[in-house]
Amino acid sequence: MPEGNQIHRFAEEHAAVFAGKRVHVDSPNGGFADAEVLDGHKLIRVDAIGKHLGYRFGRDLILHVHLGMYGDFKQGKMPLPPVKGALRLRIYTKSDWMELRGGTDTSIFTDEKWQLLRDRLGPDPLIPGSDPKPAFEKIAKRNTSIGALLMDQSVFAGIGNIYRAELLFRARIHPLRPGKDVNLASLKSIWKDAQTLMSAGVKDTRYVTTSAKDRPHPRGPVREEEERYVYRRHGKPCFICGTKIERAELATRTVYWCPNCQKK
């Protein structure tokens, strides 16, 4: 599933090309029945919060997109490519096009519905001025594991499986530790780290979370196998202590950690 950094990157890319222009909107395979409602309207801006995109065409006219596990965009210059596969949505002008395949939701939201969505989501590390205090307060009251809470979009919006694993390793916190047992200083550190890592992830399509000093090859470009500390590195030695990385199922997803660096 795309995490918040990818969603914010899509928002920036699509706004740069289409915002301020009248666009054509269609759904070649009928996956978005209301495409004709938006066709010919000017796209005002593209908003991103957590894992949700909002293409604002006017008052009470917002195209909501949630990519889910397998949704993805492609973008290019005209002419339009041939229609292939499960092409849910196209937005295009005389010079550019964007295609959406898959996705959990593609629907028109009113302003009220968009606000209700925002209200039920936690603070987004990528939105300037987001206040993390409500999230800290929720976590402090919960016996639920911190690993599950970080994936709860009502706690923090946009953090997914990769960042969940990497943020907890960098904070040296075991993913199964109860939220109420994570001190405030650690939560503040996780929040600031999320802002830094995810902001870098908006610019870089890779998820690089390791520091150069911790990599087996600290000089030169980051090697693919050294981009992350624990995510999908189960059975391999920790870059810090050499202990084998472990994994387990948590909240329907696989979580990874170093049993030595991240003690319960």
Rank of each mutant, 00 (worst) to 15 (best):
T209W: 07
I108A: 04
V155S: 00
Y229Q: 04
D34T: 01
L121N: 15
K188I: 09
A48Y: 15
V65C: 09
W114P: 00
L187N: 05
V222C: 10
G122V: 06
E227D: 13
L197F: 02
F169T: 01
I49P: 04
G158P: 07
N29S: 15
T254I: 04
S130H: 10
R59L: 04
D96E: 04
I108H: 06
L38K: 01
L197A: 08
M78Y: 15
Y55A: 00
F73A: 05
G235N: 09
S154T: 12
V83E: 15
Y163N: 07
P28N: 11
M151H: 02
E225M: 02
L184T: 13
A86L: 13
R142N: 13
K263D: 11
G235R: 09
G201T: 02
S189H: 07
L121K: 12
A35Q: 00
G201V: 06
E246A: 13
Q153I: 13
E226F: 13
P132F: 11
T110K: 10
R172A: 08
D47E: 15
L43E: 05
C258I: 00
I91L: 13
E99S: 10
E225G: 03
V46H: 02
C238P: 03
H66Y: 15
L197S: 02
P237M: 08
H64A: 10
C261E: 05
G242D: 06
V83M: 07
D34A: 12
C241H: 09
L116Y: 08
K74P: 00
E137L: 13
E226H: 04
G102V: 06
L150R: 08
R88E: 09
L176Q: 13
K213I: 06
M69V: 12
D47Q: 03
S95D: 14
S95G: 12
A194N: 11
N161K: 11
W114N: 04
L116K: 12
T144N: 11
I108S: 08
G102E: 09
P134Y: 09
L63H: 07
L67S: 11
G50W: 04
A200D: 11
E246P: 01
G147A: 07
N260G: 04
R219H: 13
I139T: 07
R120T: 03
I159Y: 10
D111R: 05
L184V: 11
I108N: 12
A200M: 12
L168W: 03
G201C: 06
M198D: 10
R253Q: 14
L53G: 00
L80E: 02
A248H: 08
I91Q: 07
D105P: 03
R56A: 00
P175G: 04
I146P: 03
G220P: 10
M198K: 12
A33C: 08
S186M: 08
V182T: 06
I240T: 13
K21W: 02
G103Y: 09
I146H: 04
L67K: 01
P132L: 07
I62R: 05
T209D: 09
S95R: 14
A194M: 10
V202M: 14
Q115M: 11
H66S: 01
M151Y: 05
P237L: 07
A11F: 09
K133V: 14
F156A: 06
A16V: 00
R228Y: 05
C241P: 06
K113A: 12
C241N: 12
G179N: 08
G58N: 07
K188W: 11
G31W: 08
D26T: 11
H8F: 13
I173K: 01
Y70F: 11
